[in-house]
């Protein structure tokens, strides 16, 4: 068992024949993900990477029973790609694209919600269930199967945490990169709920950063609902207010979203918070032993 991605994943790649789409589709296939094909409007009927190219996501659902999509479409067209997947009945939509306007994402998120789909991202590294499926751009070799569920807003910081876990002898059930934008499909709390229900996840690592109040909301929910041990790290204690730290969502504004607020809320909920990003692996190991 795992969450969101696994052996049952039938993946369609949106933006399949583009440079990014091609490179990462190859990597996902090499990892063993069941990539059924891809979508590039106007190139339907051809093949790419030995797999069919469709004009629409709906075609990929009708002909190959795609149930998951991953989006490598430029930012101006990515919100449209998200809604196309939702309207075609795709259940898990992973949007890697960075730089989608907030105005477009507010509407796309609502369309996804109405159609009962799950959106991961945008501006995220994707999802990986080690040994089963990779839906995104994570380096597969860092991950290993095991009992820890990982939730994170950022890419390389996730790999860092996972690498520490792997070196500490702890594999991962699934790692979910939820994305660094202000409007995302799945928040910390939603991802924690998925891991809470997953029998193969024994502990949860939650990696947050400054901006918004998603980590605080998750802390309150976890306190009420989660019995599994949770370890957290919040990046951005030294970030100045009012400045956007790379991620569009990583900004302390109006005095809200500081790292200290988040750490206080997480600790108050009984969650173990690491002071340094260097000790995430050791902290989980200690807690599980």
């Amino acid at each position: 068992m795992s969450v969101l991605a696994g052996k049952e994943t039938r993946l369609v790649v949106q933006g399949f024949t583009g440079k990014e789409g091609t490179f990462h589709a190859e990597q996902m296939i090499a990892y063993g993900t069941n990539v059924i094909g891809g979508v590039t409007p106007g190139k339907g009927g051809g093949t790419h990477l030995d797999r069919p190219v469709f004009n629409t996501v709906a075609d990929s659902v009708a002909k190959e029973e795609a149930n998951t999509s991953v989006i490598f479409v430029p930012p101006a067209f990515a919100a449209d790609a998200i809604t196309e997947s939702a309207l075609a009945g795709i259940k898990t939509i992973v949007c890697i694209t960075e730089g989608i306007p907030v105005k477009d994402m507010i509407v796309a998120r609502e369309v996804v919600r109405r159609h009962g789909a799950t959106l991961i991202g945008p501006n995220c590294p994707g999802i990986i269930t080690p040994g089963e499926a990779k839906v995104g751009i994570m380096p597969g070799n860092v991950f290993t199967p095991g009992p820890v569920g990982v939730i994170s807003r950022s890419g390389t910081l996730t790999y860092e945490a996972v690498d520490q876990l792997t070196k500490a002898g702890l594999g991962q059930s699934t790692a979910i990169g939820i994305g660094g934008d202000p409007v995302i499909g799945t928040k910390h709390q939603d991802a924690a709920a998925l891991f809470n229900e997953d029998p193969d996840t024994e502990a949860i690592v939650l990696i947050g950063e400054i901006g918004g109040t998603d980590e605080e909301d998750a802390a309150a929910w976890i306190q009420k609902n989660v019995k599994k041990p949770v370890v957290a790290f919040i990046a951005g204690r030294t970030a100045p207010p009012g400045r956007r730290m790379g991620h569009a969502g990583a900004i302390v504004s109006g005095g809200k979203g500081t790292a200290d607020d988040k750490i206080t809320a997480l600790k108050a909920a009984g969650i173990t918070v690491c002071d340094s990003p260097a000790v995430i692996g050791d902290t989980v190991k200690e807690l599980l032993s």
């Binding site: 950022s154 890419g155 790290f233 030294t238 790379g246 991620h247």
Partner: peptide, 9 residues
């Protein structure tokens, strides 16, 4: 960006 913030910390 996340690792950059963590590195600053």
């Amino acid at each position: 960006a996340g690792l950059a913030m963590a590195t600053m910390d």
